[in-house]
Design a binder for these strands. Sequence first.
DNA 1: ACAGGATCCTGGGGGC
DNA 2: TGCCCCCAGGATCCTG
Length: 259
Amino acid sequence: MGRVQFVGQPLRRPWKPAWSRACFGLCIQSIERRGKWILLNLTSDRCLIVHLGMTGRLLVADRRTQRPAHTHLLFDLPSDRQEMRFIDPRRFGSVTLSTQTERNRFLGRAGLGPEPWQLADREWRQALRRSRRSLKAILLDQRIVAGLGNIYADESLHQARLSPLLRGCDVTQAQARRLRLAILNVLERAIQLHGSTIRNFYYGESETGDYQKEFRVYDRADQPCRRCRSTIHCMRLAGRSTHFCPQCQMKPKVDQRTS
DNA sequence: ACAGGATCCTGGGGGC
DNA sequence: TGCCCCCAGGATCCTG
């Protein structure tokens, strides 16, 4: 990696000028992902920790092409024609440089839960059982399961036929399993379709995801449920818009546990 | 422990 | 058409 330039406006975690110098001459050795964090492992024991936030993008492009609006960071690549660009209109994202030790400490502090497909049935059940919070809040909590955002939380709950209001401690063994499998199902399908593009993004390359075409509840308030034809509701829960079908995601009225 | 709110930010959409 | 205002989201901090 050659010259590194900060050309934009401050990001959520400010890029320090010293990092540009520190990156010079380093190579990207491997790329990992943990939850919503992208880890670019560099030579010399360094790491670029990237979060895309809402609208962030990491693109490799010909250096001579016009930089899209809201380009904040440029990393010259070994090919003398290419550069890696960090673009982020809303600047909810961030890029930071750290040592591997700092990287591990950072991830440790974040306390990220397992990736969804590494979630053991028993471990998941116990995590739900010990929480009195709503399922929606639990799914958004990166410390319990890493990687779910608002869209996939809502879609997973609908597929599992569970109310977002249901408390973790009230979920039965069968329901917990259904939810875990629904999360896997929703994520696998979304990845297959390259994610969800909600609104037309006005910047950068034009490819879009297609999962939004398969939304069952998200962004479908007042429209009929595709399973039971009832009207999809939208409410605020855990600080986020929460879409659900009050008919087929009904909250059980009676606590059926044998105490 | 947990809920809820505010914060950061921008473009799009609705209302007038 | 052109304002103004609100909304969306992820992480994080603060208050109740």
